[in-house]
C-alpha cells in the first residue's frame, strides 16, 4: 500500500533571458524563481491497483514518481510504501520496485540483451531458480526468445521497449512504475505492451503506476486516474469522471477540455 500525505516540494531555478546584453548582465547577477512542484499532494494506492497518473508537462508528475521511487526527498510530508519511507530505506524499498523510463534505456547498448538481464539478476540478487522462471515467463509473454541474443543497438524501438519492460520485472517487483512506455511505438507494439501490463497485474497482482500523455494507454491500462496540475491533485477518480468533467466522450478531448477548464496547461 502506498500512502502519500501532504507532500510538498519546491525547486529554485534560474531565470535566463535572451540577448547578448542580458547574457553579460547575468554574468554578475542572477535571478531565481521558486517553483512549487508539489503542493500538499496526498493519495492512497492499494495493492494491485492500476493507476494512470496524468497531467500536462511540468505539472509535478515526475517529481511524484521520483519521490515514490526514492530518488527525491520532499521538503515536507509523509510517504510510506509497504511500511517503508522510500528515501530513508532506499535499498530495501527499491528492491521491491521496477521502473521503466520510456526515454532512457537500462540495457547495455553493444551486447546481447540477455547479458544485461544476467547483470540485473546479480544486482537484485535474484535466486537462480526464480530468475529462470521469471525469464521463461517474460520470454514467452513478450516473445523475446529471438531478441535476447541480439545486441540492443540492433533492436527496433518496439522490440527494445519489450526488453526494457522485461528488464524491469526480472526481480519480480510488487510495484511497477511506467513512464511513457509506449512513446514512439507502432500500433502492434503498443497493443502488445498494454496487453502484457494488464496480464502482469492480473496474474501477479503487481501495482502499476503509469505516467503518460497517451490517453489510449490510460484507457487501456488504468482503472483509476489521478490528475495533477501545478503541483496539486485536481482529480482522483475513474475514466468516466474524466469524461464527465472534461465534457467529452473522447478521452483525448476530455483531457484537453479538463486542462483548459482547470487552467493548468
Amino acid at each position: 500500500m502506498i500512502v502519500m500525505e501532504n507532500i510538498c516540494k519546491t525547486y529554485r531555478v534560474q531565470r535566463r533571458s535572451a540577448g547578448i546584453k542580458e547574457a553579460c548582465r547575468s554574468l554578475f547577477c542572477r535571478d531565481y524563481e521558486y517553483i512549487h512542484a508539489l503542493d500538499n499532494v496526498s493519495f492512497t494506492i492499494h495493492d494491485g491497483e492500476m493507476i494512470g497518473y496524468m497531467g500536462p508537462n511540468g505539472a509535478g508528475k515526475s517529481s511524484t514518481i521520483k519521490i515514490l521511487s526514492g530518488i527525491l526527498v520532499p521538503d515536507s510530508g509523509k510517504c510510506e510504501i509497504d511500511g517503508l519511507t522510500p528515501w530513508k530505506n532506499r535499498v530495501a524499498h527499491v528492491s521491491r520496485i521496477g521502473v521503466v523510463f520510456g526515454q532512457r534505456s537500462q540495457l547495455w547498448w553493444d551486447i546481447p540483451v540477455i547479458d544485461s538481464f544476467e547483470l540485473l539478476r546479480d544486482i537484485y540478487a535474484v535466486p537462480e531458480k526464480r530468475y529462470r522462471e521469471n525469464l521463461e515467463e517474460l520470454t514467452e509473454l513478450l516473445q523475446l526468445s529471438e531478441l535476447l541474443k541480439t545486441p540492443t543497438r540492433q533492436l527496433s524501438l518496439g522490440q527494445r521497449m519489450r526488453c526494457e519492460i522485461a528488464a524491469a520485472l526480472v526481480h519480480s517487483p510488487s510495484l511497477l512504475f511506467l513512464d511513457e512506455p509506449t512513446i514512439g511505438l507502432d500500433a502492434v507494439s503498443k497493443l502488445a505492451v498494454r496487453d502484457f501490463i494488464r496480464r502482469q497485474n492480473s496474474e501477479h497482482g503487481t501495482t502499476v503506476i503509469l505516467t503518460t500523455h497517451d490517453m489510449q494507454d490510460i484507457a487501456a491500462i488504468a482503472r483509476r486516474v489521478i490528475l495533477i496540475g501545478k503541483g496539486r491533485i485536481l482529480l482522483d477518480g475513474t475514466l468516466d469522471d474524466i469524461r464527465r468533467e472534461g465534457g467529452a466522450d473522447d478521452l483525448e478531448k476530455a483531457a484537453a477540455g479538463l486542462y483548459r477548464k482547470l487552467e493548468i496547461s
Binding site: G70, I71, V94, I97, F101, Q106, I123
Partner: peptide, 18 residues
C-alpha cells in the same frame, strides 16, 4: 546530465559500486 544516476538510485546496491 543524462539522468542515468536516477537509474542507479532505483537499484538496491551501493551507488559507488554501480
Amino acid at each position: 546530465r543524462r539522468g542515468e544516476f536516477d537509474r542507479i538510485l532505483v537499484r538496491p546496491r551501493g551507488e559507488v559500486l554501480q
